[in-house]
Amino acid sequence: MANIDELVAKLAQDASAVKPAPHPFMLSLQWLGAAAIYLAVSFAVFGLRPDLAGKFHNPWFVAEIATLLGLFVATSVSAVLLAFPDLHQKRTLALASAWMLALFLLILFFAWRSDTPPAPLPVHDIECTLGITMMALLPAVWIFYSMRKYASTHYRLAGGVALLSAFSVGALWLRLHEQTDSIVHVVEWHYLPMLAIGLVGLWLGKVMLKW
């Protein structure tokens, strides 16, 4: 008990005025804004797929892009909330990205079912995964750097969601840049690696976000 009193006195002595962390929604907005600028610059440099206007007449493509965008937004909000010890007391919202991921996978399943006859596979494969990875590196570094400033009590989950968020930026960029109609290719070389990277994030979260 005497130790506790001593510690309290010492901590109180060290305590100076502290600027509270911004609201998680503000942080998410900053992150979404930065990602939007990053995507806009990437499209300006690498270009959009030439058949994009036509692709927007395909409802499954629209649903895929919409849910991928939704996944990016949901994971961004979740990652920021998970960086706070008490999830900013918004537990349901912090776990909402799981629902968005389920919806995204469901849309992919229906898109695959409707792909008859199957679109021809492109000649490349792993180049797509590498492209997404390269594109996601900067957002991943940025989001982890931001999250390290706070105090996550769910560091594994936070790492997984953060990496999924960063890679969804890369996946979004490639889907709107590369002219590929094969959903099998897209699932195999775009989205499955993205989900696998999310699992790597569980480990990375432990390494980077533990405090």
Partner: peptide
């Protein structure tokens, strides 16, 4: 107590304190 001290900037005073400390 040391962890609370380190993480005090993640509390903004606009939500209940107890759930934050218990977390």
């Amino acid at each position: 107590l040391v962890s609370i001290h380190k993480a005090r900037h993640t509390y903004d005073g606009n939500r209940p304190y107890k759930p934050w400390a218990y977390a």
